[in-house]
Protein backbone atom coordinates (compact mmCIF):
# COMPACT_ATOMS: atom_id res chain seq x y z
CA UNK A 1 0.00 0.00 0.00
CA UNK A 2 1.44 3.32 -1.00
CA UNK A 3 1.79 6.38 1.13
CA UNK A 4 -1.56 8.02 1.77
CA UNK A 5 -1.76 11.59 0.62
CA UNK A 6 -2.41 14.14 3.29
CA UNK A 7 -5.94 14.34 4.64
CA UNK A 8 -7.62 11.95 2.23
CA UNK A 9 -9.78 9.41 3.98
CA UNK A 10 -10.02 7.25 0.92
CA UNK A 11 -8.07 7.30 -2.27
CA UNK A 12 -9.03 5.12 -5.20
CA UNK A 13 -6.64 4.89 -8.09
CA UNK A 14 -7.42 3.33 -11.50
CA UNK A 15 -9.69 0.77 -9.93
CA UNK A 16 -11.24 -1.99 -12.03
CA UNK A 17 -13.82 -4.32 -10.62
CA UNK A 18 -15.51 -7.48 -11.80
CA UNK A 19 -18.75 -9.23 -11.07
CA UNK A 20 -19.22 -12.90 -11.80
CA UNK A 21 -15.82 -13.03 -13.47
CA UNK A 22 -16.64 -10.29 -15.98
CA UNK A 23 -14.97 -6.95 -15.71
CA UNK A 24 -17.59 -4.20 -15.41
CA UNK A 25 -15.83 -0.98 -14.37
CA UNK A 26 -12.39 0.18 -15.48
CA UNK A 27 -9.96 2.82 -14.23
CA UNK A 28 -12.17 4.56 -11.69
CA UNK A 29 -10.19 7.10 -9.67
CA UNK A 30 -11.37 9.43 -6.95
CA UNK A 31 -10.32 10.87 -3.60
CA UNK A 32 -12.51 11.35 -0.60
CA UNK A 33 -11.75 14.03 1.95
CA UNK A 34 -13.20 14.55 5.43
CA UNK A 35 -16.55 16.32 5.20
CA UNK A 36 -17.10 15.23 1.62
CA UNK A 37 -19.94 13.16 0.21
CA UNK A 38 -19.55 11.34 -3.06
CA UNK A 39 -22.69 10.30 -4.90
CA UNK A 40 -22.31 7.39 -7.30
CA UNK A 41 -24.66 7.44 -10.23
CA UNK A 42 -25.09 5.21 -13.22
CA UNK A 43 -27.53 2.93 -14.92
CA UNK A 44 -28.61 -0.41 -13.40
CA UNK A 45 -25.87 -3.00 -13.52
CA UNK A 46 -23.08 -0.48 -14.09
CA UNK A 47 -21.31 -1.72 -10.94
CA UNK A 48 -22.23 0.64 -8.12
CA UNK A 49 -22.84 -2.20 -5.70
CA UNK A 50 -19.75 -4.07 -6.85
CA UNK A 51 -17.62 -0.96 -6.39
CA UNK A 52 -18.96 -0.49 -2.86
CA UNK A 53 -18.39 -4.16 -2.00
CA UNK A 54 -14.80 -3.84 -3.20
CA UNK A 55 -14.31 -0.75 -1.06
CA UNK A 56 -15.78 -2.61 1.92
CA UNK A 57 -13.31 -5.43 1.33
CA UNK A 58 -15.96 -8.04 0.56
CA UNK A 59 -14.54 -8.88 -2.82
CA UNK A 60 -11.16 -8.58 -4.51
CA UNK A 61 -10.45 -5.87 -7.07
CA UNK A 62 -9.26 -6.66 -10.58
CA UNK A 63 -6.75 -3.85 -10.83
CA UNK A 64 -5.81 -0.61 -9.19
CA UNK A 65 -5.45 0.42 -5.58
CA UNK A 66 -7.70 1.44 -2.76
CA UNK A 67 -5.91 3.42 -0.06
CA UNK A 68 -7.94 3.53 3.08
CA UNK A 69 -7.16 3.35 6.78
CA UNK A 70 -7.82 0.13 8.63
CA UNK A 71 -11.39 -0.24 9.88
CA UNK A 72 -12.47 3.04 8.32
CA UNK A 73 -15.48 1.97 6.27
CA UNK A 74 -18.95 1.17 7.55
CA UNK A 75 -20.84 -0.62 4.81
CA UNK A 76 -24.62 -0.75 4.39
CA UNK A 77 -25.88 -3.12 1.75
CA UNK A 78 -29.27 -3.60 0.10
CA UNK A 79 -30.17 -6.03 2.86
CA UNK A 80 -30.95 -4.56 6.24
CA UNK A 81 -29.10 -7.10 8.37
CA UNK A 82 -31.70 -6.92 11.12
CA UNK A 83 -32.68 -9.78 13.40
CA UNK A 84 -36.46 -9.85 13.51
CA UNK A 85 -36.60 -11.62 16.86
CA UNK A 86 -34.55 -8.94 18.62
CA UNK A 87 -35.93 -5.57 19.65
CA UNK A 88 -34.80 -2.36 17.97
CA UNK A 89 -32.58 -1.46 20.92
CA UNK A 90 -31.10 -4.97 21.11
CA UNK A 91 -30.23 -4.91 17.42
CA UNK A 92 -28.49 -1.56 17.76
CA UNK A 93 -26.77 -2.40 21.02
CA UNK A 94 -25.33 -5.53 19.45
CA UNK A 95 -23.73 -3.56 16.63
CA UNK A 96 -22.52 -0.92 19.08
CA UNK A 97 -20.74 -3.63 21.06
CA UNK A 98 -19.28 -5.16 17.91
CA UNK A 99 -17.88 -1.78 16.88
CA UNK A 100 -16.71 -1.04 20.40
CA UNK A 101 -19.00 1.91 21.06
CA UNK A 102 -21.67 2.31 23.71
CA UNK A 103 -23.98 5.13 22.74
CA UNK A 104 -27.11 4.05 20.90
CA UNK A 105 -29.31 6.96 21.98
CA UNK A 106 -27.87 9.38 19.41
CA UNK A 107 -28.63 6.92 16.65
CA UNK A 108 -32.16 6.26 17.94
CA UNK A 109 -32.86 9.98 18.02
CA UNK A 110 -31.26 10.65 14.64
CA UNK A 111 -33.52 8.16 12.91
CA UNK A 112 -36.64 8.78 15.02
CA UNK A 113 -36.64 5.29 16.52
CA UNK A 114 -37.01 6.22 20.20
CA UNK A 115 -40.70 5.33 20.33
CA UNK A 116 -39.98 1.99 18.68
CA UNK A 117 -37.02 0.95 20.80
CA UNK A 118 -38.69 -1.99 22.55
CA UNK A 119 -40.58 -3.25 19.52
CA UNK A 120 -39.45 -6.49 17.94
CA UNK A 121 -37.67 -5.61 14.72
CA UNK A 122 -39.77 -8.21 12.90
CA UNK A 123 -42.90 -6.14 13.51
CA UNK A 124 -41.49 -2.97 11.94
CA UNK A 125 -42.50 -1.73 8.52
CA UNK A 126 -40.02 -1.85 5.65
CA UNK A 127 -39.19 1.84 6.03
CA UNK A 128 -38.72 1.53 9.79
CA UNK A 129 -36.39 -1.43 9.26
CA UNK A 130 -34.43 0.65 6.80
CA UNK A 131 -34.09 3.43 9.38
CA UNK A 132 -32.87 0.90 11.96
CA UNK A 133 -30.38 -0.41 9.44
CA UNK A 134 -29.07 3.11 8.77
CA UNK A 135 -28.92 3.86 12.49
CA UNK A 136 -26.32 1.10 12.66
CA UNK A 137 -23.94 3.38 10.73
CA UNK A 138 -24.19 6.02 13.43
CA UNK A 139 -23.27 3.55 16.19
CA UNK A 140 -20.41 2.12 14.13
CA UNK A 141 -18.40 5.28 14.74
CA UNK A 142 -16.47 4.76 11.51
CA UNK A 143 -15.40 7.76 9.41
CA UNK A 144 -16.52 6.57 5.96
CA UNK A 145 -20.03 5.41 5.25
CA UNK A 146 -20.45 3.30 2.12
CA UNK A 147 -24.15 3.26 1.36
CA UNK A 148 -25.88 1.19 -1.27
CA UNK A 149 -29.29 2.62 -2.22
CA UNK A 150 -29.91 3.85 1.33
CA UNK A 151 -33.27 5.44 0.65
CA UNK A 152 -35.09 2.36 -0.64
CA UNK A 153 -38.53 2.19 1.05
CA UNK A 154 -37.98 5.43 2.96
CA UNK A 155 -40.73 8.07 2.81
CA UNK A 156 -39.98 11.73 2.23
CA UNK A 157 -39.72 12.62 5.91
CA UNK A 158 -37.35 9.73 6.53
CA UNK A 159 -35.24 10.72 3.54
CA UNK A 160 -34.91 14.10 5.17
CA UNK A 161 -33.88 12.48 8.47
CA UNK A 162 -31.33 10.47 6.57
CA UNK A 163 -29.97 13.54 4.79
CA UNK A 164 -29.64 15.29 8.17
CA UNK A 165 -27.82 12.28 9.63
CA UNK A 166 -25.40 12.25 6.70
CA UNK A 167 -24.86 16.00 7.06
CA UNK A 168 -24.16 15.61 10.80
CA UNK A 169 -21.68 12.88 9.95
CA UNK A 170 -19.97 15.06 7.33
CA UNK A 171 -19.82 18.01 9.73
CA UNK A 172 -17.99 15.74 12.17
CA UNK A 173 -15.25 15.25 9.56
CA UNK A 174 -16.74 12.03 8.30
CA UNK A 175 -17.25 11.12 4.67
CA UNK A 176 -19.82 9.17 2.71
CA UNK A 177 -20.03 7.31 -0.59
CA UNK A 178 -23.63 6.93 -1.62
CA UNK A 179 -24.97 4.94 -4.54
CA UNK A 180 -28.39 6.35 -5.25
CA UNK A 181 -30.79 7.46 -7.97
CA UNK A 182 -32.61 10.19 -6.11
CA UNK A 183 -31.55 13.65 -5.08
CA UNK A 184 -30.73 13.41 -1.39
CA UNK A 185 -30.26 17.08 -0.70
CA UNK A 186 -26.78 16.36 0.63
CA UNK A 187 -24.04 18.59 -0.70
CA UNK A 188 -21.85 16.21 -2.54
CA UNK A 189 -19.81 15.64 -5.59
CA UNK A 190 -21.43 13.39 -8.18
CA UNK A 191 -19.44 10.62 -9.82
CA UNK A 192 -21.12 9.44 -12.99
CA UNK A 193 -19.99 5.85 -13.50
CA UNK A 194 -21.29 5.31 -17.03
CA UNK A 195 -18.09 6.50 -18.78
CA UNK A 196 -16.05 3.94 -16.83
CA UNK A 197 -18.00 0.92 -18.07
CA UNK A 198 -15.64 -1.80 -19.21
CA UNK A 199 -15.58 -2.16 -22.95
CA UNK A 200 -14.14 -5.64 -23.15
CA UNK A 201 -15.12 -8.47 -20.91
CA UNK A 202 -11.61 -9.71 -20.51
CA UNK A 203 -9.55 -9.28 -17.45
CA UNK A 204 -9.51 -11.95 -14.86
CA UNK A 205 -6.75 -11.19 -12.38
CA UNK A 206 -3.71 -13.36 -12.78
CA UNK A 207 -3.70 -16.31 -10.45
CA UNK A 208 -7.38 -15.87 -9.78
CA UNK A 209 -9.06 -19.24 -9.71
CA UNK A 210 -12.34 -19.18 -11.61
CA UNK A 211 -13.51 -22.23 -9.72
CA UNK A 212 -13.74 -20.15 -6.60
CA UNK A 213 -16.31 -17.83 -8.05
Amino acid sequence: MKQETMDTLLSVHELSVARGGLSILCDVSFDLFPGQALVLRGRNGIGKTTLLRCLAGLQPVLNGTIDVGADAIAYASHADGIKSMLSVAENLRFWAQVFGTTDIETALVAFDLVALRDRMAGTLSAGQKRRLSLARLVVSGRPIWALDEPTVSLDQASCLLFAQAVQTHLDAAGAAIIATHIDLGVNGQVLQLDPYAATSNTGVPSGFDEAFL
Binding site: G57, L58, D80, I82, K83
Partner: peptide, 13 residues
Protein backbone atom coordinates in the same frame (compact mmCIF):
# COMPACT_ATOMS: atom_id res chain seq x y z
CA UNK B 1 -30.28 -14.27 4.19
CA UNK B 2 -30.81 -11.09 6.17
CA UNK B 3 -27.43 -9.61 5.22
CA UNK B 4 -25.88 -9.83 8.69
CA UNK B 5 -23.07 -12.06 7.44
CA UNK B 6 -21.83 -9.33 5.07
CA UNK B 7 -21.97 -6.87 7.93
CA UNK B 8 -20.18 -9.21 10.32
CA UNK B 9 -17.49 -9.78 7.70
CA UNK B 10 -16.90 -6.03 7.42
CA UNK B 11 -17.06 -5.48 11.19
CA UNK B 12 -13.96 -5.28 13.41
CA UNK B 13 -14.47 -8.87 14.55
Amino acid sequence: EDGSLDLLATSPL
